[in-house]
Amino acid sequence: MPFDRKRAIAVRIVREIRRDRRSVALIIGAPIIVMSLIGFSFQDQKPVLNQAAPALIATMAMFFVFVLTGISFLRERSQGTLERLLSTAVTRSDLLVGYLAGFLLFALVQSVIILMFTLFVVDVDYAGKLWDIVLILLIVTITSVSMGIFISTFAKNEFQVVQFIPLLIAPQIFLSGVILPTSQLPGYFQGLSGALPLTYANRALRDIMLRGASLADVSTEIGVLLLFAAGMLAAAATTVRRP
């Protein structure tokens, strides 16, 4: 069975995360707290909230999955299980697809929870289809899982993975239009913002949620996001076997 290894890796990842109760609570609780904070502080300024919410959803999906994958893959290296796996017949694609599937399932649950909370508790206005939003979040997750695996090659411990957050995640939050619309950024930053996956995720999610755009309307953004995902996946594939 060609998919047996991939499936076993995915199942193992889900199992490991599920057994870590506190992490599960944080992964679900933290975004809800952040969302509540923002939601309730902008209660009187609905337009600001509506503008920020789609971007925040994408940012959180990217952020949590990146940290989770980065640390679990790093652990795989440092505890020696990767070395042991690589002495079996495991291939790069087994590892990548297995990891992706495991975290996608997880990210899907997380995204849906954030989404539901944002839409129905914080009461952000939205048009468009729910599944379209989830699809965009899935592509963001693929990018994020691959980025986590790739980055884990350059980190020797958990502290170092966390140090990559200000380097990789913070600029995206500032430059992808989460806080300021990208059009209000200085010219040179606008160029940089065009090179960040979150910019496209934000744009697509805003169009869908605020203007009721269809997937066809945001096909450019989806295309660019897929390119980022493919690029990150390729980067992860080249470093996955490194000791």
């Binding site: 193992r12 199992r15 490991e16 057994r19 870590d20 505890q79 020696g80 299980t81 070395e83 042991r84």
Partner: peptide, 9 residues
Amino acid sequence: QLNALYESL
């Protein structure tokens, strides 16, 4: 040399 096991399993 390391035990190389998944500790939560």
